[in-house]
Every structure is written in C-alpha cells, then in structure tokens.
Design a protein around this nucleic acid. Structure first.
Length: 291
DNA sequence: CACTTGACCTGTCCGC
DNA sequence: TGCGGACAGGTCAAGT
C-alpha cells in the first residue's frame, strides 16, 4: 500500500506527534512483525526518547537517544497510528478509517510516559519493525541496494535514464517498481506517471527514447509531489499518523479507474496485468510502437 | 547477471 | 447464504 507519498505523510505526522516522547512500555503480539529480542527491546527502546523520524524510499526510521533506531517497513497494509489526548478516539467519520485501538490488526503497541500510544497495525502481516544501531541502518541489504530518491534535487532525467539501463529488457512498469532502479514508486504512481508520459506499461525499457524518459521523469516528480500535497492515496488500508485517509485517489487519472473515461481523450481506461500487478492505462494514448 | 514467478498473510469481493 | 477463487498498494528467495 504505502508508497513514497504515503510514507512521507506518515513521517511528517510522526515528527509532529512523537518526537521528544519517552517510551514506557512495548507490547508485541506478532513476533514476526518485530523480531528483536525482549532484552534488546528493554535495553534500547524502553526508556528511550524519540529524537527524529526520517524516511528512505518506503522505509521509516525512528531515531532514539540510545543510538538505536526503529526501522519500519509498512509493506502492503501497515499503519503507524498515534493516539494521544490530541486525537483520542475514532476521529471524524469522513476521514478516519479506524476506530478504537488496539484492534485485531494491531501487532505492536508502544506506550509513552505521558500515556499516549503509537500503534503498528498490519492486517496482512507483511510489514516489519527492527531495532538497529543507528549507524548500521545504511548497511542493511535494502539500504545498500535501493536507488535514488526521486524528490531529491540531485535526481535528474539523465539519472533516471542511467538507472533504467540496468533493466533494458524489462517492461518499463517492472523497472519503475524495482526499488534498486529508483526509490519509492509502487503500483499506483507507476500507473499514474506512465499515463502522464503516454507510455505503455509493457513497453520495453530499451525501446524508449530520451524524450520519453525525460517526460516520464517530469511526470514521476509531478505525481509524487501532488500526492504528498494531498496526503497520499487511500485505496483500502492506508492512513496517516492520525488514522486519517489521504485524498490523492480522487485526483488519480487511471489508477482504479478501469471502464471510466481517460481524462485527456475520453477513451475507456482498461486494466491489464503487467509484471504480476494490476495495471491501468489508456489504450488509445499509451501504445507500443513497432518500427 | 537479468528477469520472472511464487511466497509471505488476511480480508473482501465476485460468480456460481 | 455459502463456498471457491481471484485479487489487494511490496519485497525477497528461488527459479529459468
């Protein structure tokens, strides 16, 4: 579920809500979600203070004053939801997806010394948290291999072109989903940016020309920025740190819009399967050229 | 090495 | 209403 804009929205929310809080207790209902030993938890998390919340790709990093960090991947259905006096209860029915916590999806519950709480919910149990020395975070396999951040100023169309060369024979959609090519894109923003650039998701990377890659670069950056502005996409499970939905999905051009008209040409949007994922496109504008 | 597929899980929706 | 199967926003291991 959560792609770069959703994880970034959670990061901003957590920075506002939990930095400076001191951990009192930690409950873990599903050890696979948080496999550190109890003694590590007691030594480096309990009684620690949160100093910062960072993001790299789709991974959140909560830094603690013990020189350890909580590294968190939400995968498909993970949620990090804060509950304190500021927002206790279910929130507004129009923008909240979840009610009282903990609930049956709660895997980890962190209580702070002021009685506020942070819940790690994850229906499908794919997500995880790990307690690691802060200095080791860049050395985990994922961090070593992950590609550039698309919203950093150093990221350019030229860099996108270079990074894509490692997947020359893949479909462009598979390449965009490959986190070693580029960080943070998932199924929603792959479809949205390919529509923006008028590129067929099954087009081979090696057959795309530089103007097409340049257009794709612009669309990736534009779509990600717009989604962050809208608080991300809530397709089913995603909520921010306050348990509230994002609204980007209302602005989506093709994602989850099969059988609806293309916003540019009114052709019916179709849904196909590419790289094992549901894929949405305009069949008139996004075509594979033969030469 | 590049590339694709199946596995990890629970829940929901759709067709019979 | 029940039941089986497909599918859901991500990543990794194992296969070709």
């Amino acid at each position: 579920m959560p792609e770069l804009p959703e994880v970034e929205t959670v990061r901003v929310g957590l920075n506002r809500l939990v930095v400076g809080k001191k951990v009192l207790t930690v409950l873990n209902d599903w050890p696979k979600s948080f496999p550190n030993s109890q003694s590590d938890v007691n030594q480096f998390l309990v009684s620690s203070k949160i100093t910062n919340v960072r993001r790299r790709a789709k991974v959140l990093i909560i830094d603690l004053d013990t020189s350890y960090s909580l590294v968190i991947h939400l995968k498909m259905t993970g949620q990090l939801v804060y509950r304190g006096d500021e927002n206790f209860g279910a929130g507004h029915p129009n923008d909240s997806l979840i009610g009282n916590l903990p609930d049956k999806s709660t895997r980890v519950e962190v209580t702070f010394t002021d009685t506020s709480k942070l819940f790690f919910n994850d229906q499908r149990k794919f997500g995880w948290m790990r307690l690691l020395p802060t200095i080791e975070v860049p050395n985990i396999d994922f961090m070593r291999r992950v590609g550039p951040e698309p919203l950093e100023p150093e990221f350019t169309a030229g860099i996108l072109y270079e990074r894509l060369q490692r997947r020359k024979n893949s479909s462009i959609k598979a390449a965009l989903l490959d986190q070693t090519v580029l960080a943070g894109i998932g199924n929603i923003y792959a479809d949205e940016s390919l529509w923006g650039a008028k590129i067929h998701p099954e087009a081979k990377v090696g057959r795309l020309n530089k103007p097409q890659i340049k257009k794709l670069y612009t669309e990736i950056v534009t779509v990600l920025r717009l989604s962050i502005e809208k608080g991300g996409s809530t397709d089913r499970n995603y909520v921010n740190a306050e348990g509230k939905k994002g609204s980007y999905i209302e602005f989506a051009k093709v994602f989850r819009r099969e059988n609806l008209p293309c916003p540019r040409c009114s052709t019916k949007i179709i849904k196909i399967r590419v790289a094992g994922r549901g894929t949405h496109l305009c069949p008139k504008e996004q075509v594979i050229k033969n030469d």
